[in-house]
Amino acid sequence: MSAKTRHGTHSPFVYNLVDKVIYNFKDNSDYNNLENLRESLLKDESVITITDLGAGSQVNNKKQKKIKSLAKNALKPKKLAQLLYRLAKEFKPNNLIELGTCLGLTTAYFSVAVPNAKITTMEGCPQTAKSAQQNWEKLNLSNINVEIGDFDDNLPKVLAKEENIDFVFIDGNHRKQATLNYFDWCLPKVHDKTVLIFDDIYWSVGMKEAWEEIKNHPDVTVTIDLFWIGLVFFKTDQAKQNFKIKF
């Protein structure tokens, strides 16, 4: 089902989510310090060594890169980062897992949105993770733990420590099989209120195929395709429906 606006949706849950959260473009004072951090990163001349374990590693691996260049190419756009903040604030997860820390700006948005949540973020590159930690310290954020290394090693370990998972943002290693692996590993821990968010669902043919498989999985009841990201829900009181919403 495609819906260009909230009025095209026939699910009260999705209608309210679109109306209250996705299309809520009001200013929020919580954004100010986070966007100030973005501006400072876009001017930061420091150089770090990139270790990239995901898709694109042949291009970036062991390359020297300025923080400002990494910020320009890898940070989530303001509109999307603020949507992720609103989604986290709406669903109030007790635990939040992020695959792909980068410089930690999106992680910081999550931390400010849900200061009482336990946030675990994963990053393959040690120097990028170090920069992210410095950024969180500047913002006095204390509910974030970063796991450095390969997602294939770290995600199963992190999931094993949780009885269930509330909110997962998957933004790293944009390959079809890797994406499906992350989804499959999360499945045993999901519950009625779990939200999985997949980034860059149209990044490649493989990512499009992975998104289609996830949408069609029998445990998935509702998906919302926002083009940039895909939201996945397991709500047992919902008929199975896939929505496309213009964002």
Rank of each mutant, 00 (worst) to 15 (best):
S131V: 13
S131L: 11
C102H: 09
T128H: 03
V114L: 08
L99A: 15
Y109M: 14
A113K: 06
T101N: 06
S131F: 01
N116I: 00
T120I: 15
K118R: 15
A117L: 07
A108S: 15
V114R: 06
Q127Y: 07
G124W: 01
I119A: 11
L99E: 02
V112R: 09
E123F: 04
T121D: 10
F110S: 12
P126M: 13
M122Q: 11
I119M: 13
I119W: 09
P126K: 04
G104M: 04
T106P: 07
Q127P: 04
E123G: 08
C125V: 04
L103K: 03
A108H: 01
K130T: 12
T121A: 08
Y109P: 01
S111G: 13
G104E: 00
F110R: 06
S131M: 13
C102W: 03
K118F: 14
T121M: 05
F110V: 05
T121V: 06
A132P: 07
T128E: 13
G100S: 13
M122R: 00
L103T: 05
A129P: 09
C125S: 15
C125D: 14
G100D: 14
P126Q: 12
G104Y: 02
E123P: 12
T101E: 08
T107H: 02
P115T: 02
Q134G: 11
Q134S: 14
Y109L: 05
C102Q: 11
A117V: 10
A132I: 02
T128M: 15
M122I: 15
K130R: 13
E98F: 06
E98P: 10
I119K: 07
K130D: 15
K118M: 14
S131Q: 14
T121F: 05
N116K: 15
T128G: 14
T106L: 02
E98C: 09
M122K: 03
A108R: 00
T121N: 07
V112T: 14
F110M: 12
G124M: 07
M122G: 10
Y109R: 00
Q134R: 12
T121R: 01
E123A: 09
T121C: 13
Q133N: 11
C125T: 01
P126W: 04
A132K: 01
K130F: 11
L99D: 10
A132Q: 02
L99R: 07
G100K: 06
L99M: 14
G104W: 01
T107D: 11
S131E: 12
E123I: 05
S111T: 01
T107A: 10
Q134D: 09
T101S: 13
Q133P: 07
P115C: 10
A108Y: 04
N116A: 13
C102K: 01
G104K: 00
E123H: 07
M122T: 12
T121Y: 05
V114H: 08
T128W: 03
T121H: 06
